[in-house]
Amino acid sequence: MNRKKFFRTATPYFFILPWVIGFLVFTIGPLIFSLIMSFFDWPLTADPKFIGLGNYIEMFTEDDQFRKSLVISLKYAAIFVPLNMIIALFLAMLITQPVRGVKVYRTIFYIPAVISGVAVSIIWGWILNSDYGILNYLLSLLGIEGPRWLVDPAWALMAVILASAFGVGTMMLIFYTDIKNISIDIYEAASLDGASVSKQFFSITLPMITPTILFNLITSIISSFQQVTLVMLLTGGGPLNSTYFYGLYTYNNAFKHHKMGYASANAWVMFIIILLLTALVFRSSSAWVFYETEAKNSGAKKKRKGGKEA
């Protein structure tokens, strides 16, 4: 009888056991280990030496590249995140229009999002080539002299942004499914009231999808800080370190210069920055994110209150 009871209580834990083991061995274990490593001078080939906050002090006081890479990544996020969201939302609006064949367009817009960053970097490296690239050729047909994208330090970051935006489909799809879920009745009521298309967009669509905007904002801030494959292969961090992203800086410290302790400290600083930015976005969200259930609840409350008074 006792055994039976034990099994009944233990059953759910058996089901979640794979994740618990994976969490301990592949996530929290490494996370703690990484924090410990960040207090050590830890070359791959020699014995580690405890240096306390040494790595962090070095980063903030001696290492110029730390600050530069941080600024580059912040700049990238500041341009790429809003740009990507606007394009994604624009495309999502296009493919939710009631015209025939939009599903085909939906598929086309999403395709670049399913190919490898390696392939994206090869395709764009070739298109943006300043000697024979087709983009500058097309610009020259319009009478514009294209910049030397990957060679000019002033333009390399733009080139990376351009190539990243090719994968806008993932975010577009998230907006798309959300816009699709908005009840058509609301729009019909609005257009009966004579609301114009742009009025409908700004006072119905946009407020209704603010939770999704919040979700996309947070996930894309996180992912833009971790961007590394594309820069590694498209520019290699150059020219003149103008695209030496923070992720690449951390990677090189660890796996090129074998400064495992220092790189761990780099990674923790990034982790903390991501957490702070996320917290900041969340805090601001109560001012601009509109939750449907919330509105319903407060509406219901008001009614109840009104009932009492009557």
């Binding site: 592949f26 996530t27 490494p30 996180i222 971790q226 990677y251 790189a263 780099n266 990674a267």
Partner: peptide
């Protein structure tokens, strides 16, 4: 959790 933090350990 960013990949850098867990990738090294």
């Amino acid at each position: 959790i960013p990949w850098d933090v867990t990738m090294i350990p």
